[in-house]
Structure formats: C-alpha cells, structure tokens
Design a protein around this nucleic acid. Structure first.
Lengths: 338, 338
DNA sequence: ATTCTTACAGAAAACGTTTTCTATGCGGAG
DNA sequence: CTCCGCATAGAAAACGTTTTCTGTAAGAAT
C-alpha cells in the first residue's frame, strides 16, 4: 500500500497540485501549507523520485566517472564531490573505468540514459580524444586529465611544473641519474613525463622515462627490470601514488632501502608516507579543492551552457622529506642527528 | 530533440509496445526485431530510465551506505559491490554517514524515495538498534556491523576471535601489558573490544581497553595520553586500519618506533603495512568476499523475502609481521634512553 | 461602481516508458 | 469444415509526479 501524492491531497483536503507546490516550496496559503505538512507526516508520504524526474525532466543526479575508486586520489576527490552534491540535493552515480575505454563509453551512455544533470569525468588516455570533441547532452567537467583544445571544462594539476619540482628536488639532493616512471594510460602521465623530461634537459641531465602500463604488478615489474640493470639510476620519480607505493614495495622486495640505496619521490600524499624511507618526498594534490572546483564549474556551466570551455590549473604542494636526500649525506646526518 | 520509443516505433513501422518488447528481449518475430534494432541504431535511441522505473516499478538500483568511503576497508568493499552490481545491470548509490545517525536515517529515507531494490548498510552504533528492528520496504543486508537478533541479514567478520588472535600473537611475542584501542561508534569496535578483553582474561592478563570516538585526531590524542602515562603498556592493538595508521603516526610523532619502543597490531591490511615498523601484524579482512557475500544475500533475499534473517560470519587472515616481536635488547636501550 | 489585474487553487494534461487488454491470424483438433 | 486455442502485435491504460491551463475571488484603478 504505497502512499502517493494523491493520498496526501485527500487527507489534507486539497488538490495534488497544491501538495506538489507545498513540497517544492512555492507560494501557498499558510493554512493550507500547515494542513499539507500535517498530512505528509501523518501518511508518511515519501515522494517517488522516478516519477518526479520523469515529469520535471531533471534528474538531480550527477555522474562521477573515474579510473578506480581505490586510488586514494580518486577516493578523496569523490568524497568531496559527494559531500557537496548531497548538500545541494544531488545524487551521485559512481563508475570505475579501470582505464578501459570501452567501459568508459558504456558508462557515458548510461549517464545519457539516466538523463544526468552533469558529469565529472577522469577520462582514459584513448577516451579523452573522443570525449574532448564529443558534444554531450549534459555538461562534462574533466578532472585530472584533459587535452589542449578540449570542448569540455577541466580542472587539472600543473603537471609539468610539479614534475619539474620533483626533478629539481632530487637534483638538489645530489642526484644526477634520475629515472621517471609514468603511467601510459592517462594524459596526466604524459604531462608529468614531459615536465620531467624538460626539467632534466634544462639541468643538462639525460632523461630516463619509463612508461608503465595500467595493471596489477606492472610497476613492480618495470622496477625490478630497472634495478637489475647495472649502473642504474640513483633516484626515481613515480607518476602517482599507486605507482609510488608499488615501486617502494618492489624496492623492499629487492632487499634495498630508501633513501640509502635509491632515492624516491612522487605524486600524491597519503597518511603513511612520512613514516617510511625517512619520509617520502611527494607532490600533494589539492584533492578537496579539485572536487570543489569541479562542482563549481559544473554549476556555472549549467547556468551558462554556451560560454567557452574553461581550464583550471591548480598547483600542488611539494612536501620535502627524507627520501630525496642523497644516501651519503643522509647516512652522515643520521649518525650525528638522531 | 530527444528521441523516444515512439520515434523508434515510427521509424521501424511498428508499435511502441513492440519496441519495448524487443528491447527487453521478449519473444518477437525475427524480421520485426531486425527492423527495430536497425531503427534504434539509426535514431540513436537511449531509453529514459526514469520513465522505465516509474512504469515497471523497479529501480534496478541498490544503495550502499557506509561510514566513510576513505576508510580503505569500505573502499575495497564498495569496489567489489559496484563491480558485481554493474555486471547485473544495477546502479549503485553510495552514501557516507560519517558515523552520524542523523545522516544515516536521512540516507535511508532517500533510499525509500529512490525505491531502491535493496540496501547494503554498515550501520552506526546508535543506528543499528533502530535499523535492526525496523521493517524496510526493501531488503537490507548489514555489513561489518550487526547486533544479535537483528531482523536483517548480515555479513560480518568473526571479530571476537580475530581480536583474540592478535592478543595471543602479542602474548607469544613476549608482551604482557597490552592495551587495545577500539572505536566507540560501531558494534565492530565493541565486539573486538570484547574479544580482546576475554582473551586477556583467559591469559590471566589485565585488559586495558581504550574507547576512541570517531573523528579526526581522536586516536592520536588517546595515544599521546597513554604513552605519556608512566609504566604504560608495551603493546597496542588497533580496532581498524584507520586507527592503526593514526596510532602509528602518533608513535612516530612522539619520537618512538615500532617495535622497539612499543609493539603494534591491528585490523585491516593495506599495501604499505609491510614496509613500516618491521611490518605491521594485522588481521586482513576478506574484503572481496564480504562484498560478494553481501550481494549474494541481497539476491537471495529478493527471491525469498520471508525467510528468517541470516548471519554470515567470515574469518580473517592473521598476517604476522615484525611489529609484534618483542626485542629485549632494544627494550632496555629504550628504557635507559627515555 | 465597474472593470482590470493579480494571486492562488483545482482540473487536467503531460512526461516516456511498460503492461494489460484486445484483436487478428494461424494451426490443430474434433 | 468449423471451432477453439494460442501466439503475436497494436491500442490503450497506467505508473506518480509536475506543470500548464482554467476559473474564481479579492484588490486596484478608473
């Protein structure tokens, strides 16, 4: 015995339209409002959102499509997005693409079917080309990844600059052979790789970029290969937090340690990263700010659908810790310091 | 110019009903099916899910209500649930309660309005009483937390036994003064506390349970208080992964280290936990299995709404690492040092 | 005082599907 | 050969809201 708006109307002695008006907070006579509200609590009425969406033609739902919610960067951004969304009475549909373009386009079709209000999307490497040119029925804000000339709004990190910062940090720590591991399945990886390469060149050093495919164990494999090469790099840069963790694990698995045997730095900060290897030097992304900005851009785009696409580039914070200090210096400081 | 089922019907030269039948895979003449499918691709038709849900009276949507998606345990379970759900053509609505009963009941009302197919819920301490007795319009499966005699299905860890395992592990490592930090806002915390207390008593030791409120910095605060108490415990147990991380951070902040100054063990395994403090001894929860079981129970409950509530208790894996080993030599050196 | 405007409530249409109902044609049984 | 049943497709109803349309009453302006 589901209770509908007509039941409420009957109990309150008004028309269904009036109940609807009260519930959506439009101007209604005060005494009727009282009666309707009373009838709502009396009947325990809960609106049927499917019906509401069908008739009103807006879903009050946004889509959030990311590579993998288990990546702490996406976890954090998602949480911020969800908080803001629910505050505004919006539902969130979360989807994981696993860097799979087929999944990505499937989910974007789903968004279409849900008639979502808007979508926040972290596109895959191959999906971004398509997405950036495509005209969707809903506004799309790209996060973390975009390409120049994209038709969509975007909010991204200043990847080149941040990668360069890490290079300079390692250089200041006394390192000259610095290898960089970069994800091959996102524009973010490419951009960070480019920033790294340029910074190395500027310092007169030889870049050693290593592209790493997405997938379990890929980073470990690449690491092991590199460390087994005689005369390998003395310092490493990781393209993101997941890769950084994987690389650190590989280093330990090889019986080596940071920073004594090899220096290590990367992107994304996590709560444990100051507890290991003398503390990992990382670029901390403004995750909350990214989520907030994405939601803000989505709102603005809903208000002004026809403005030119906007790109917001945010800076990160470089947290310098012990993992980038050259082993010799580090060993001395340990002996004398603590 | 939105294209509806009627447009498809017109293009295909059939009725809307026939299009609907083709799309839902019911028996239709082969030639008509061809024509409809062609018309669908030609028009680029995408069904309107709101309309479909309204008429068909099922939403193909499940709710997933957890404390905080940033807790890696919930992250992992969520991911599994979402994968299975999307495989079955179900949408997932994710909600974070922050251990706040008000938020929890608000979200459960939302589920009602969405007319969800079912809900997977990790209830708060105060919410579980209400939830366990309440009769929802949809099946509910409790995960991670429940109470005896709950009216809902549930899948939980064998918390008492696992907590006892940690106690025995520390005892075997030579520890006699073992304190336990347990979350005060979930039944899981209470159960693990109970298991800890019983195991301690069985060993003839004095339990020192410390209840910790949910919230930023609570665990650190409790840790600092404890470690500043003269003659404090030599070993610590953490109620969950988030707390374990926080406690480890507090230990480092105090300039102490694991296991030299204090032993540490806890619940939930994370990829970095073998890299710090000689490796943290933890109970690894079968996160994937939990998600899978929750979805399975939900399905079964949909098929048999009136069976008695079922409780599935899963075991965890105790991963013994260096953090629980007592080192007499180090203990002495610490004693003299501080 | 009469008409025009405004404000607000109820009636009815509309949203885009699925489902029920009705009709038609065909095959098999009597 | 006729009738009954069955399968299948179209017509129409239904899902539960919001929105548009219509009517009425009260206040303002002439």
């Amino acid at each position: 015995m589901p209770v509908g708006i007509k039941d409420v109307a009957r109990v309150a002695g008004v028309s269904a339209a009036t109940v609807s008006r009260v519930l959506s907070g439009r101007a209604v006579d005060a005494v009727m409002q009282k009666r309707v509200l009373a009838a709502v609590t009396e009947t325990g009425y809960r609106p049927n959102l499917a019906a509401r969406r069908l008739r009103s033609r807006h879903s009050n739902t946004i889509g959030l499509v990311v590579a993998d919610i288990r990546n702490p960067f996406f976890t954090a951004v998602s949480r911020t997005v969800e908080d803001i969304a629910y505050e505004r009475g919006l539902r969130v549909i979360l989807c994981n693409t696993d860097e799979n373009p087929a999944k990505e386009s499937m989910y974007l079709q789903l968004m279409q079917e849900e008639r979502v209000t808007g979508v926040i999307l972290a596109p895959t490497q191959s999906g971004v080309e398509q997405a950036a040119r495509q005209r969707f029925d809903f506004p799309v804000v790209l996060i973390d990844r975009t390409i120049p000339g994209a038709a969509q709004d975007s909010v991204v990190l200043d990847n080149e600059a941040m990668a360069a910062l890490l290079v300079h940090q390692l250089h200041a720590g006394g390192h000259r052979r610095i290898a960089g591991f970069f994800g091959a399945s996102s524009t973010t990886g490419s951009e960070r790789s480019a920033g790294y390469t340029k910074a190395m060149a500027d310092l007169g050093l030889t870049p050693e970029p290593v592209p790493v495919a997405h997938g379990e164990g890929e980073a470990e494999r690449a690491m092991t290969t590199l460390m087994n090469t005689p005369g390998h790099a003395t310092a490493l840069i990781a393209s993101n937090g997941v890769m950084l963790t994987a690389m650190l694990r590989a280093i330990h698995a090889l019986g080596l340690s940071v920073p004594q045997d090899v220096a290590l730095a990367g992107f994304d900060n996590e709560p444990w990263m100051d507890l290991v290897g003398g503390g990992l030097t990382v670029i901390e992304q403004p995750v909350e700010e990214i989520g907030r900005a994405a939601m803000a851009m989505l709102s603005e785009r809903l208000d002004h659908p026809d403005g030119p696409p906007r790109k917001m580039v945010l800076g990160g914070r470089c947290i310098v810790r012990g993992s980038t200090i050259r082993s010799a210096a580090r060993a001395v400081s340990v002996h004398s310091g603590s």
